[in-house]
Amino acid sequence: MQKELIIAGFGGQGVLFAGQVLAYAAMDSGFEVTWIPSYGPEMRGGTANCTIVIADEEIGSPLVQHPPYAVALNLPSFDKYEAEMQAGGVLVVNQSMVDRISRRTDITCIFIPANEIAEALGDKKLTNMVAMGAMLACLPELSLKDVQTALSNHLSARHKHLLPKNFEALQRGCDFAREHLAAQTAS
């Protein structure tokens, strides 16, 4: 088994952190995992992304050309990764930040108003966790509970009070994606 996933967005949207949480969950579940950020002369407001590879054997390349899974938190990331996705892949798109529908018919796009859901929970900074929750609905290798446990185990003490909100954000995102997928299957 090997699954590759890219999370992309603006710097400051919590892209790298969301990827790390997923990597922690994979490690705690006994998988091999790599997390690698795009690094460069980058800054807040610029683009950021990270690639996570989860496998049950020694991982070769930590980078992937055509990801089967991706999360795009803004329009530039949607433009870029929609084109690069593997056929049959799943792309979670932050609908709050894009103004178009998908151009591809051979991938599953889950449009989720992640900003609005996060704001309704009281903190726009939860956008990354809402989108991650949606992705988890499509990643059977990791459960929502695995990721919540990883968050509790690895979040620094001074951030521990934020756990309940993060759990809720993950749950909302996951529920939204499940409903979305169920509606798609039904139609």
Partner: peptide
């Protein structure tokens, strides 16, 4: 190289 330096692994 930068990959090894910047990558996180268990």
């Amino acid at each position: 190289d930068g990959n090894i330096g910047q990558m996180m692994e268990p």
